[in-house]
């Protein structure tokens, strides 16, 4: 009897192992019916209705004044920015970083940033946290860099270039607000260069507030420092303006 029980247990064990190994790895590019692939989304005209599915990689704070948030979403092929998604606090809480969502809205462009506006969101089952894609090689060429628009990218070995304020000759490693008109708690702006090309980067406080590691790391930067960065490749008026999420000074 003991032998039979042992054999049965072994069989159950083997079967469960098989079931576990058979479970498919999530296909992060799989789309439900009627949902656009990333390529189809790119081809969609501005001001047209779009439906996309992807995994939330970042979410801005919940704006209690207007009842909305903005999302950075990604699948295996590309990324999407959802601007001011109207939602309640409870709906916002259900949107998790890494979680899968279905977004229905209108494709739009504002100041060069392609985004989805007037959107609604449905939380789906599924999880995927993207690794930052190394886009350092594309840094000097905007035409190449824009292919990573809205994606979580890594940019390595870049230098902090001085920022200045009006009527002030002091060289700053970063500014509170784009022209230095802010104070602690304002968005941080700093210039980053590969030696040839310089862009302004931003710590968007609606994404990473003043108590986050990245905010403090940027406040501690020195002009000339070599840094590695990660962030969402936001675009503004013809130039990249990454929303930085991680900075490592070397």
């Amino acid at each position: 009897m003991k032998k039979i029980v042992s054999v049965l247990l072994l069989l159950v064990l083997a079967l469960s192992c098989t079931l576990v190994s058979c479970e498919k790895e999530e296909d992060i590019n799989a789309k439900s019916e009627g949902v656009l692939t990333y390529a189809q989304y790119c081809d969609a005209a501005l001001d047209s209705d779009v439906v996309i599915e992807g995994y939330v990689q970042g979410k801005q704070i919940y704006n209690t004044q207007y009842g909305n948030t903005s999302l950075y979403i990604q699948d295996g092929d590309g990324a999407y920015f959802v601007y001011r998604l109207a939602c309640t606090q409870a709906e916002y809480d259900k949107i998790k970083v890494g979680g899968k969502v279905k977004i229905s809205g209108t494709k739009s462009e504002w100041g060069g940033e392609v985004e989805i506006v007037d959107a609604t969101c449905e939380v789906l089952t599924g999880e995927y946290i993207a690794k930052a894609t190394d886009a350092t090689a594309a840094f000097g060429n905007k035409d190449n860099l824009i292919k990573y628009q809205n994606q979580l990218v890594a940019l390595k070995g870049l230098k902090v270039v001085a920022s200045t304020k009006k009527d002030d000759t002091t060289e700053y490693a970063f500014l509170y607000n784009w022209d230095g008109s802010g104070e602690k708690g304002s968005d941080l702006y700093f210039n980053v260069s590969d030696g040839t090309t310089t862009y302004q980067f931003c710590v968007e406080t609606d994404l990473c507030g003043k108590d986050t590691d990245v905010y403090k790391a940027v406040e501690a930067l020195k002009v000339g420092a070599t840094i590695d960065l990660e962030g969402f490749l936001f675009w503004y008026e013809g130039n990249p303006n990454p929303h930085v999420t991680k900075v490592t000074a070397k």
Binding site: D167, G180, S181
Partner: peptide, 10 residues
């Protein structure tokens, strides 16, 4: 309130 203008802050 300023118009994101450092001159006004000053």
């Amino acid at each position: 309130k300023n118009d994101t203008n450092i001159s006004q802050v000053n």
